[in-house]
Amino acid sequence: MTRPQWVPPGTDTEKPNAARVYDYYLGGSHNFAVDRELARRAVELWPELPMIMRANRAFLRRAVHYAAEQGITRFLDIGSGIPTFGAVHEIARETAPGAEVVYVDQDPVAVAHSELLLADDPLSQVVQADLRQPADLLTRPPVAALLDAGEPVAVLLVAVLHFITDAEDPEGIVRQLRAAMPAGSILILSHACLEGRPDQTGPHQDLYARTPTPLTMRSRKRISGLFDGFDLVEPGVVYLPEWQPENPGAVGSHPERFTGMAGVGRLP
């Protein structure tokens, strides 16, 4: 049953939350015991996880930097979580000082935290919305204002679509977002993939199954398919460290161990 709009969602700090678990992996303390508990168990099963999360964050940084260098000054970060370190607005403004960012998350704690953090930043806004209802998300005033100007927008779906189940139709969601993006916009996307460590995917998905945000890892083919309608920027859909590395040593000899695929597409 869908809750009517005017009934508020609850804030359940008794359950682990993907945004706060992610923060823990990145060395942050924006998390609660339940989050750390889950993260520790995940790391026990899969010690590289913090490294993978950092690689994901590093991809986000490189991709946002790329977008800013392409002249993009509008950013829509969907599934932004707790953007404490290396937040999109900070990265973007290194290149484009006036960059505007709208952060979107469905978790009320993450949203509240972002609001506290960004209270003094007139160019950043926070929206609580659910990616599974893209039509609703797109009509939220800050989002609509960002897109309505007709200028290219960088839409970030970084490590978020694997929280969308097949039944919730991730391809359909991306399609709806694409339809709202002005020409020349950029899609920045990363997604947990099945190929890198097939031995780990099962237990890891089981662990997340107990959170409000269960995890669905997908194949490289499915992930590439999410860029339908976009022109892929070099080098295409690749393992996280392989996307436009800043130096050859950064990729390492086993990029597949990062089990995340990333890519950037440009809307013609």
């Binding site: 005017w6 009934v7 508020p8 969602p9 609850g10 804030t11 700090t13 706060r20 942050g28 303390s29 924006h30 998390n31 609660f32 707790i82 404490t84 009320p108 704690v109 993450a110 949203v111 509240a112 935290h113 609001e115 506290l116 953090l117």
Partner: peptide, 26 residues
């Protein structure tokens, strides 16, 4: 660590209050 713990608690608190306000409004 202390600062971040405080800020996340503050956020959780604010979110909860927001929810309560909304609940109260409803």
């Amino acid at each position: 660590t202390l600062r971040e713990q405080e800020s996340i608690r503050l956020a959780a608190d604010s979110a909860r209050k927001g929810a309560e306000r909304a609940l109260y409004a409803s």
